[in-house]
Nucleic acid binder design. Structure first.
Lengths: 190, 190, 190, 190
DNA sequence: GATGAATGAGATTTCATTCAT
DNA sequence: TATGAATGAAATCTCATTCAT
């Protein structure tokens, strides 16, 4: 197992276990076992349990940031680009349920550090710029940028959560389109 | 101190501490101290830590359910009633930040039991019925009910979270109206 | 077992084990077992291992301070009182070898806190005053007080250490008198 | 870096760290880092941590033994030679505080092996012979040799400790002479 | 010889829960 | 009913030592 593999295995194990048992329920010994390394080895790569979790957050946010702008093009219309962002992030979330659940837990825990918020800011900066463009072009409502961002993101998150919850209500393609349209109708200028 | 006071004090203490330190960071001894009772006393009222938390969740959801329908009237228009629900829950959340943060943590933790989801269902049942009415009257879009419910609730939650986050971005009355309008425009039929 | 007994049992166990295995070699689990309490119980009485050790130091120094002045009388001659102090502390040390060895380890470890030095000061203050009297009366040499104190105490410590070391060289009564005389001849004015 | 340099660097690092953090507080990884070698390298030169410490003790005692007899001459008077020894060792200690503190910790720890005592014996043998001479010549009191040795050594140690303690009481040249005189007056025949 | 990643036993400490008072 | 001292399993983290490179 190469060096980077062990670090990665620890992060992956931590994420899986947190989604299964929560922060508290995830003991370092469990992480070690799942990652296939010795307990002490984790501490060669990370200072503490907290650091494992924070680094995990950073890496997941980076991936989310990349997924967000995939196939995005500055040439598209605001509406097209909006739908692109909406579906991009939705798909990333439902295709990476562990990451999604981890993020939700992390974001809503009191551990969330200032650092975390900054990380978050970085990943979603492209969208922030996009929303600003949309407003300037008179296509989107002149809402406070951070608020619009929060409302839109909250919208997708709710949809993903619905799809991933074990209540046998998978979101269909049609429903995804309805949801995206709903979100769009809420921010566009009539 | 009357019997009910102790039970209530424990629940209140648990909630405050969970919002401060998370599920994990909240020790029963801390709860006992904050509630002004002995550690053992908690176990006269509750079976376990988990039961304290679950009962807390149930009680909080009841209060949320009551707040939701305050000043609601079957006679109002769908739009008015929608705005009423939206602002009712928004205000309850921002006026009870401990409850709100507790709910967010609880909802996103893997502890969430089936029982919890049922509780949730009960509290929001009136809104579900209302949405159905709106659809039947041709005012709201014929979206899957649970999805519409999730999208709308996720919308308010995002707004409340924005207001309560310590980033100095308090949501103004004007912004609340814009947000509610945005949500409404996303579900109404054009 | 009464409350105070458990606290005392922990301190006693810690002292015995430290003289046997050193600070490092003494695990809290060993202390618990020897004291006849559960590991967690120690933490009801003390904040940490360090606090156990520091409190132990404080208590031992108090006992040493009491032993030092036993049967001391302001009416005796300087010489008699000097011999009294010398033999008092010598006997306390050899009759309480665990305390003595613990003190030696503690004093020479880098853990020794400022607090420890103050504690030390308190216990030996009577002797400091006595030495000053002796100087003022022209019986003792006008040496810097703290230095004289250190030299005399170092003298007794060496003797006690010699007696307690497992080299089969027990110090006889005669040798004790010779040693005390030697110390006295070194500080008195000829 | 030559072979001997690494061995020496390890010993030096171990000594410095022990005086700073104690036996317990000194991890092999810290020693490796301070010595500028890899952790595993230490185990090419030494069997174990204990062996590093024991060898360190041996080497330090050798140096102390050499310093002790510097500029000593069999031709001098007993008194002059006594003062020579006293000041020699005092100066060595205060000029090599790390070695001194290490020795004090080592000597008072339960790790002190039989081997260590023998090492000690070797280093101070010249003084033992000298004291015997002094007694035979009728200049020194006919005290048990090991006791006299212990008392005198304890005397110097106390003085050095006083000087090195961080209580702002540096021992002056005059005080050193007073102390040596005090020690001498305690062992010479009146 | 030299490295330093890896190990895993064991250290300190926490904490949900019990039970004698 | 109420207490809070006591428990001991389990958590996080450390560290002497090994070994493949």
């Amino acid at each position: 197992m190469a060096v980077e593999d062990k670090r990665g295995a620890v992060l992956q194990a931590m994420m899986e276990l947190i989604t299964e048992h929560g922060f508290h329920g995830t003991a370092m010994s469990m992480v070690a076992k799942r990652a296939g390394v010795a307990a002490g080895t984790i501490y060669h790569y990370f200072e503490s349990k907290e650091e494992v979790i924070n680094q995990l957050y950073g890496e997941v946010m980076q991936r989310v940031g990349l997924a967000l702008v995939q196939e995005d093009s500055n040439k598209g219309s605001i509406k097209d680009r909006f739908f692109r962002y909406y579906t991009n992030i939705y798909h990333y979330y439902i295709q990476h349920p562990d990451e999604f659940r981890f993020l939700e837990q992390y974001t809503n825990s009191p551990y969330t550090s200032q650092l975390a918020r900054e990380e978050n800011g970085k990943a979603f900066e492209p969208v922030l710029l996009f929303l600003q463009q949309g407003i300037e072009l008179g296509v989107l409502r002149p809402l406070e940028l951070r608020m619009m961002m929060a409302l839109v993101h909250g919208h997708v998150i709710s949809l993903a959560k619905l799809h991933l919850s074990d209540n046998n209500l998978p979101v269909t393609q049609e429903q995804l389109e309805q949801a995206a349209q709903s979100c769009w109708d809420g921010v566009r200028i009539n």
